Amino acid sequence: MAAFVLRRPFALTSALKQLPKATTPAARAFHSSPVKQQLFSQRSSTPIATTVTKSRPTFQKAFRRYDSSLQGIPNPAASGTLGQRFLYGAAMVGGSVVALNLVFNREQREDGGMPPYERAYLNDTFLHTGLGLGIIGVAASALHRSGWSYRLMSANPWVVLGGGLVVSLGTMFGTFSTHPDNYVQKYALWAGFNVAQAAVLSPLLFLQPALLARAGLYTVAMMGSIAFVGATAKQEKYLYLGGPLLAGVALVAVSGFAPLVLPATAARTLMWSERIWLYGGLAVFGGFTLYDTQKILHHARLAERGQARKDVVNESISLELDFLNIFIRMVQILGMQQRRK
Protein backbone atom coordinates (compact mmCIF):
# COMPACT_ATOMS: atom_id res chain seq x y z
CA MET A 1 0.00 0.00 0.00
CA ALA A 2 2.94 2.35 0.43
CA ALA A 3 3.12 2.64 -3.34
CA PHE A 4 -0.41 4.01 -3.45
CA VAL A 5 0.29 6.54 -0.71
CA LEU A 6 3.26 7.88 -2.62
CA ARG A 7 1.59 7.86 -6.01
CA ARG A 8 -1.81 9.18 -5.02
CA PRO A 9 -1.05 12.93 -4.74
CA PHE A 10 0.37 13.04 -8.27
CA ALA A 11 -2.95 12.16 -9.80
CA LEU A 12 -4.95 14.41 -7.51
CA THR A 13 -3.83 17.93 -8.19
CA SER A 14 -1.20 17.90 -10.91
CA ALA A 15 -3.34 20.15 -13.08
CA LEU A 16 -4.23 22.66 -10.34
CA LYS A 17 -2.08 25.67 -9.60
CA GLN A 18 -2.72 28.96 -7.78
CA LEU A 19 -3.22 32.40 -9.21
CA PRO A 20 -0.79 35.04 -7.88
CA LYS A 21 -1.98 36.47 -4.61
CA ALA A 22 -1.81 40.12 -3.72
CA THR A 23 0.16 39.97 -0.50
CA THR A 24 1.49 36.44 -0.08
CA PRO A 25 4.11 34.74 -2.22
CA ALA A 26 2.84 32.01 -4.51
CA ALA A 27 3.19 28.45 -3.25
CA ARG A 28 2.60 25.15 -5.00
CA ALA A 29 2.24 21.52 -4.02
CA PHE A 30 5.15 19.21 -4.81
CA HIS A 31 3.16 17.24 -7.34
CA SER A 32 2.22 20.23 -9.49
CA SER A 33 4.12 21.29 -12.56
CA PRO A 34 7.19 23.49 -12.06
CA VAL A 35 5.81 25.91 -14.65
CA LYS A 36 5.13 29.11 -12.80
CA GLN A 37 1.52 29.47 -13.87
CA GLN A 38 -1.21 29.62 -11.27
CA LEU A 39 -4.82 28.50 -11.38
CA PHE A 40 -6.56 29.54 -8.20
CA SER A 41 -7.53 33.04 -7.26
CA GLN A 42 -7.80 34.07 -3.64
CA ARG A 43 -11.36 34.11 -2.36
CA SER A 44 -12.64 37.65 -2.46
CA SER A 45 -15.73 39.71 -3.12
CA THR A 46 -15.16 39.60 -6.88
CA PRO A 47 -18.11 37.97 -8.66
CA ILE A 48 -17.52 34.41 -9.84
CA ALA A 49 -18.08 35.36 -13.47
CA THR A 50 -15.28 37.93 -13.28
CA THR A 51 -12.98 35.45 -11.57
CA VAL A 52 -13.65 32.83 -14.21
CA THR A 53 -13.06 35.30 -17.03
CA LYS A 54 -9.66 36.13 -15.59
CA SER A 55 -8.84 32.52 -14.67
CA ARG A 56 -9.60 30.86 -17.98
CA PRO A 57 -6.67 32.29 -19.98
CA THR A 58 -4.38 31.64 -17.02
CA PHE A 59 -5.48 28.01 -16.88
CA GLN A 60 -5.03 27.59 -20.63
CA LYS A 61 -1.48 28.90 -20.27
CA ALA A 62 -0.70 26.59 -17.35
CA PHE A 63 0.78 23.97 -19.63
CA ARG A 64 2.90 26.43 -21.65
CA ARG A 65 6.66 26.58 -21.30
CA TYR A 66 8.63 29.19 -23.15
CA ASP A 67 11.73 27.76 -24.81
CA SER A 68 13.12 29.99 -27.54
CA SER A 69 15.52 27.32 -28.73
CA LEU A 70 12.57 25.14 -29.80
CA GLN A 71 10.55 27.81 -31.59
CA GLY A 72 9.80 27.06 -35.20
CA ILE A 73 10.28 23.29 -35.00
CA PRO A 74 7.47 21.71 -37.04
CA ASN A 75 5.15 19.22 -35.40
CA PRO A 76 4.36 16.49 -37.95
CA ALA A 77 1.45 15.21 -35.85
CA ALA A 78 -0.26 18.61 -36.14
CA SER A 79 0.17 19.08 -39.89
CA GLY A 80 -1.32 17.42 -42.96
CA THR A 81 -4.76 15.98 -43.58
CA LEU A 82 -6.77 13.95 -41.10
CA GLY A 83 -5.72 10.73 -42.82
CA GLN A 84 -2.06 11.69 -42.63
CA ARG A 85 -2.40 12.48 -38.93
CA PHE A 86 -4.08 9.14 -38.34
CA LEU A 87 -1.33 7.29 -40.18
CA TYR A 88 1.32 9.21 -38.26
CA GLY A 89 -0.32 8.36 -34.94
CA ALA A 90 -0.76 4.71 -35.93
CA ALA A 91 2.90 4.53 -36.92
CA MET A 92 3.93 6.00 -33.56
CA VAL A 93 1.79 3.51 -31.64
CA GLY A 94 2.87 0.52 -33.72
CA GLY A 95 6.52 1.50 -33.56
CA SER A 96 6.31 1.92 -29.81
CA VAL A 97 4.77 -1.53 -29.36
CA VAL A 98 7.39 -3.19 -31.55
CA ALA A 99 10.28 -1.31 -29.92
CA LEU A 100 9.11 -2.03 -26.38
CA ASN A 101 8.53 -5.68 -27.21
CA LEU A 102 12.01 -6.07 -28.73
CA VAL A 103 13.82 -4.27 -25.91
CA PHE A 104 11.95 -5.49 -22.83
CA ASN A 105 10.35 -8.73 -23.91
CA ARG A 106 13.22 -10.91 -25.08
CA GLU A 107 12.47 -13.53 -22.42
CA GLN A 108 8.86 -14.54 -22.84
CA ARG A 109 6.71 -16.85 -20.78
CA GLU A 110 7.84 -20.43 -20.42
CA ASP A 111 4.36 -21.92 -20.01
CA GLY A 112 3.48 -21.48 -23.66
CA GLY A 113 1.01 -18.65 -23.09
CA MET A 114 -1.28 -17.09 -20.52
CA PRO A 115 -3.47 -19.61 -18.65
CA PRO A 116 -7.25 -18.97 -18.78
CA TYR A 117 -7.50 -17.95 -15.12
CA GLU A 118 -4.74 -15.33 -15.54
CA ARG A 119 -6.35 -14.02 -18.72
CA ALA A 120 -9.76 -13.77 -17.04
CA TYR A 121 -8.34 -11.98 -14.00
CA LEU A 122 -6.39 -9.52 -16.16
CA ASN A 123 -9.39 -8.86 -18.41
CA ASP A 124 -11.62 -8.21 -15.38
CA THR A 125 -9.04 -5.78 -14.00
CA PHE A 126 -8.80 -3.91 -17.31
CA LEU A 127 -12.60 -3.81 -17.49
CA HIS A 128 -12.83 -2.21 -14.04
CA THR A 129 -10.02 0.20 -14.93
CA GLY A 130 -11.89 1.35 -18.02
CA LEU A 131 -15.12 1.62 -16.05
CA GLY A 132 -13.41 3.69 -13.37
CA LEU A 133 -11.88 6.04 -15.93
CA GLY A 134 -15.27 6.32 -17.58
CA ILE A 135 -16.82 7.33 -14.25
CA ILE A 136 -14.12 9.97 -13.83
CA GLY A 137 -14.74 11.35 -17.31
CA VAL A 138 -18.54 11.46 -17.02
CA ALA A 139 -18.46 12.90 -13.49
CA ALA A 140 -15.86 15.54 -14.44
CA SER A 141 -17.96 16.62 -17.42
CA ALA A 142 -21.12 16.85 -15.32
CA LEU A 143 -19.36 18.80 -12.58
CA HIS A 144 -17.80 21.14 -15.12
CA ARG A 145 -21.16 21.91 -16.75
CA SER A 146 -22.72 22.55 -13.35
CA GLY A 147 -20.17 25.29 -12.56
CA TRP A 148 -18.08 23.23 -10.13
CA SER A 149 -14.85 24.05 -11.96
CA TYR A 150 -15.51 27.77 -11.57
CA ARG A 151 -16.12 27.48 -7.84
CA LEU A 152 -13.10 25.20 -7.43
CA MET A 153 -10.81 27.71 -9.12
CA SER A 154 -12.06 30.54 -6.91
CA ALA A 155 -11.67 28.54 -3.69
CA ASN A 156 -8.71 28.55 -1.35
CA PRO A 157 -6.15 26.26 -3.04
CA TRP A 158 -4.87 24.77 0.20
CA VAL A 159 -8.44 23.83 1.21
CA VAL A 160 -8.87 22.16 -2.18
CA LEU A 161 -5.57 20.31 -1.80
CA GLY A 162 -6.28 19.16 1.73
CA GLY A 163 -9.88 18.25 1.09
CA GLY A 164 -9.06 16.43 -2.13
CA LEU A 165 -6.33 14.39 -0.47
CA VAL A 166 -8.47 13.50 2.53
CA VAL A 167 -11.44 12.37 0.44
CA SER A 168 -9.32 10.51 -2.11
CA LEU A 169 -7.12 8.75 0.40
CA GLY A 170 -10.08 7.96 2.62
CA THR A 171 -12.13 6.37 -0.15
CA MET A 172 -9.08 4.59 -1.58
CA PHE A 173 -8.02 2.95 1.68
CA GLY A 174 -11.66 2.25 2.47
CA THR A 175 -11.89 0.37 -0.82
CA PHE A 176 -8.68 -1.54 -0.10
CA SER A 177 -9.84 -2.63 3.35
CA THR A 178 -13.33 -3.75 2.27
CA HIS A 179 -13.71 -7.46 1.55
CA PRO A 180 -14.57 -8.27 -2.08
CA ASP A 181 -17.69 -10.15 -0.97
CA ASN A 182 -19.12 -6.93 0.47
CA TYR A 183 -20.15 -5.69 -2.97
CA VAL A 184 -22.26 -2.70 -1.97
CA GLN A 185 -19.69 -1.08 0.30
CA LYS A 186 -16.80 -2.02 -1.99
CA TYR A 187 -18.26 -0.47 -5.12
CA ALA A 188 -19.69 2.53 -3.26
CA LEU A 189 -16.25 3.45 -1.92
CA TRP A 190 -14.67 2.77 -5.31
CA ALA A 191 -17.22 5.04 -7.01
CA GLY A 192 -16.52 7.71 -4.37
CA PHE A 193 -12.80 7.46 -5.12
CA ASN A 194 -13.43 8.00 -8.84
CA VAL A 195 -15.80 10.92 -8.24
CA ALA A 196 -13.16 12.52 -5.99
CA GLN A 197 -10.66 12.38 -8.87
CA ALA A 198 -13.24 13.88 -11.21
CA ALA A 199 -13.97 16.73 -8.80
CA VAL A 200 -10.33 17.79 -8.60
CA LEU A 201 -9.46 17.25 -12.28
CA SER A 202 -12.60 18.84 -13.76
CA PRO A 203 -10.85 22.19 -14.55
CA LEU A 204 -8.87 20.32 -17.21
CA LEU A 205 -12.02 20.61 -19.32
CA PHE A 206 -11.23 24.30 -19.85
CA LEU A 207 -8.59 23.09 -22.30
CA GLN A 208 -9.32 22.24 -25.92
CA PRO A 209 -11.22 18.95 -26.33
CA ALA A 210 -8.95 17.96 -29.21
CA LEU A 211 -5.88 18.29 -27.00
CA LEU A 212 -7.48 16.20 -24.23
CA ALA A 213 -8.55 13.56 -26.76
CA ARG A 214 -5.03 13.29 -28.18
CA ALA A 215 -3.55 13.06 -24.69
CA GLY A 216 -6.00 10.31 -23.82
CA LEU A 217 -5.24 8.41 -27.02
CA TYR A 218 -1.48 8.62 -26.47
CA THR A 219 -1.89 7.54 -22.86
CA VAL A 220 -3.95 4.51 -23.85
CA ALA A 221 -1.38 3.62 -26.52
CA MET A 222 1.52 3.96 -24.08
CA MET A 223 -0.12 1.98 -21.30
CA GLY A 224 -1.49 -0.63 -23.71
CA SER A 225 1.90 -1.35 -25.23
CA ILE A 226 3.60 -1.52 -21.84
CA ALA A 227 0.84 -3.75 -20.43
CA PHE A 228 1.25 -6.07 -23.43
CA VAL A 229 4.94 -6.42 -22.64
CA GLY A 230 4.18 -7.11 -18.97
CA ALA A 231 1.54 -9.71 -19.82
CA THR A 232 3.69 -11.66 -22.29
CA ALA A 233 7.06 -11.37 -20.55
CA LYS A 234 8.55 -14.07 -18.36
CA GLN A 235 6.65 -14.56 -15.12
CA GLU A 236 7.63 -12.14 -12.33
CA LYS A 237 10.42 -10.74 -14.49
CA TYR A 238 9.65 -7.13 -13.59
CA LEU A 239 8.38 -7.48 -10.04
CA TYR A 240 11.79 -6.35 -8.78
CA LEU A 241 10.95 -2.87 -10.09
CA GLY A 242 8.81 -2.05 -7.05
CA GLY A 243 11.67 -0.62 -4.97
CA PRO A 244 13.40 1.37 -7.74
CA LEU A 245 10.06 2.81 -8.85
CA LEU A 246 9.30 4.04 -5.33
CA ALA A 247 12.70 5.72 -5.34
CA GLY A 248 11.81 7.28 -8.71
CA VAL A 249 8.53 8.60 -7.31
CA ALA A 250 10.45 10.21 -4.46
CA LEU A 251 12.82 11.88 -6.94
CA VAL A 252 9.91 13.19 -9.00
CA ALA A 253 8.27 14.48 -5.81
CA VAL A 254 11.44 16.31 -4.77
CA SER A 255 11.70 17.88 -8.22
CA GLY A 256 8.20 19.27 -7.69
CA PHE A 257 9.35 20.89 -4.44
CA ALA A 258 12.19 22.72 -6.19
CA PRO A 259 10.27 25.93 -7.02
CA LEU A 260 9.31 26.27 -3.36
CA VAL A 261 12.88 26.32 -2.07
CA LEU A 262 14.98 27.60 -4.98
CA PRO A 263 15.18 31.27 -5.95
CA ALA A 264 13.80 32.40 -9.28
CA THR A 265 17.34 33.25 -10.40
CA ALA A 266 18.24 29.53 -10.45
CA ALA A 267 16.63 29.21 -13.87
CA ARG A 268 18.72 26.28 -15.07
CA THR A 269 18.04 24.24 -11.94
CA LEU A 270 14.33 24.99 -12.14
CA MET A 271 14.32 23.97 -15.80
CA TRP A 272 15.88 20.61 -14.97
CA SER A 273 13.49 20.08 -12.07
CA GLU A 274 10.60 20.64 -14.48
CA ARG A 275 12.01 18.10 -16.91
CA ILE A 276 12.43 15.55 -14.13
CA TRP A 277 8.84 16.09 -13.02
CA LEU A 278 7.51 15.84 -16.58
CA TYR A 279 9.62 13.28 -18.44
CA GLY A 280 10.91 11.47 -15.37
CA GLY A 281 7.32 11.13 -14.23
CA LEU A 282 6.37 9.60 -17.57
CA ALA A 283 9.15 7.03 -17.22
CA VAL A 284 8.29 6.24 -13.58
CA PHE A 285 4.58 5.73 -14.15
CA GLY A 286 5.23 3.82 -17.35
CA GLY A 287 7.38 1.55 -15.20
CA PHE A 288 4.57 1.28 -12.67
CA THR A 289 2.26 0.12 -15.48
CA LEU A 290 4.70 -2.67 -16.29
CA TYR A 291 5.11 -3.58 -12.63
CA ASP A 292 1.36 -3.45 -11.89
CA THR A 293 0.54 -5.69 -14.87
CA GLN A 294 2.92 -8.39 -13.67
CA LYS A 295 1.71 -7.91 -10.10
CA ILE A 296 -1.87 -8.53 -11.23
CA LEU A 297 -0.83 -11.77 -12.93
CA HIS A 298 1.11 -12.79 -9.83
CA HIS A 299 -1.97 -12.20 -7.68
CA ALA A 300 -4.01 -14.27 -10.15
CA ARG A 301 -1.65 -17.22 -9.65
CA LEU A 302 -1.83 -16.82 -5.87
CA ALA A 303 -5.63 -16.69 -6.00
CA GLU A 304 -5.73 -19.82 -8.17
CA ARG A 305 -3.70 -21.65 -5.52
CA GLY A 306 -5.93 -20.31 -2.73
CA GLN A 307 -3.17 -18.20 -1.20
CA ALA A 308 -4.86 -14.85 -1.87
CA ARG A 309 -8.33 -13.55 -2.61
CA LYS A 310 -9.41 -12.17 -5.96
CA ASP A 311 -9.96 -8.41 -5.83
CA VAL A 312 -10.03 -6.79 -9.27
CA VAL A 313 -11.35 -3.52 -7.84
CA ASN A 314 -8.20 -2.98 -5.79
CA GLU A 315 -6.06 -3.98 -8.75
CA SER A 316 -7.82 -1.48 -11.02
CA ILE A 317 -7.10 1.45 -8.73
CA SER A 318 -3.35 1.10 -9.27
CA LEU A 319 -3.81 1.19 -13.05
CA GLU A 320 -6.14 4.18 -12.77
CA LEU A 321 -3.47 6.08 -10.87
CA ASP A 322 -0.91 5.19 -13.52
CA PHE A 323 -3.26 6.40 -16.25
CA LEU A 324 -4.05 9.72 -14.55
CA ASN A 325 -0.41 10.51 -13.90
CA ILE A 326 0.60 9.74 -17.48
CA PHE A 327 -2.43 11.55 -18.92
CA ILE A 328 -1.72 14.78 -17.04
CA ARG A 329 1.85 14.82 -18.30
CA MET A 330 0.71 14.06 -21.84
CA VAL A 331 -1.64 17.04 -21.66
CA GLN A 332 1.21 19.29 -20.61
CA ILE A 333 3.57 17.98 -23.31
CA LEU A 334 0.97 18.42 -26.05
CA GLY A 335 0.13 21.89 -24.76
CA MET A 336 3.80 22.84 -24.98
CA GLN A 337 4.02 21.50 -28.54
CA GLN A 338 0.93 23.42 -29.55
CA ARG A 339 2.54 26.71 -28.51
CA ARG A 340 5.62 26.02 -30.63
CA LYS A 341 3.74 25.92 -33.91
Rank of each mutant, 00 (worst) to 15 (best):
A2G: 11
A3W: 12
V5G: 08
F10M: 06
L12C: 13
L16M: 15
K17R: 11
P20L: 01
P20F: 01
R28E: 04
F30Y: 15
F30Q: 05
H31K: 01
Q38L: 06
L39K: 04
F40M: 02
Q42W: 08
R43K: 04
T46E: 12
S55Y: 01
T58E: 13
Q60R: 15
A62H: 13
F63G: 07
S69Q: 11
L70Q: 13
L70W: 06
G72Y: 07
G80Q: 07
Q84V: 09
R85V: 11
Y88Q: 10
M92G: 05
S96D: 07
V98Q: 13
R109G: 14
G112S: 05
P116E: 13
P116F: 09
E118S: 08
A120S: 13
L127V: 01
H128K: 12
H144A: 09
W148N: 04
W148Y: 10
S149N: 00
Y150D: 11
L152M: 03
L152Q: 05
S154Y: 00
W158D: 06
S168P: 00
T175F: 04
S177F: 12
S177Y: 12
D181G: 15
L189H: 10
W190R: 07
W190T: 06
F193H: 14
F193A: 05
V195H: 09
A196E: 05
A198D: 08
P203V: 10
P203Y: 10
P203G: 10
L204R: 07
A210W: 06
L211P: 04
A213E: 14
A215V: 04
L217N: 10
Y218I: 06
A221D: 01
G224M: 03
S225H: 02
A227T: 11
A227H: 01
F228E: 05
T232G: 00
A233G: 09
G242Q: 09
G242M: 04
G248N: 02
V249A: 12
P259S: 08
L262T: 11
P263E: 09
P263M: 06
T269K: 00
L270Y: 09
G280C: 06
L282K: 00
F285A: 02
F288K: 08
Y291D: 00
Q294V: 09
E304N: 10
R305A: 14
Q307I: 01
R309M: 03
K310C: 00
N314T: 07
E320R: 03
I326A: 11
R329K: 05
Q332D: 03
L334Q: 10
M336E: 14
Q337F: 11
K341E: 14
K341N: 09
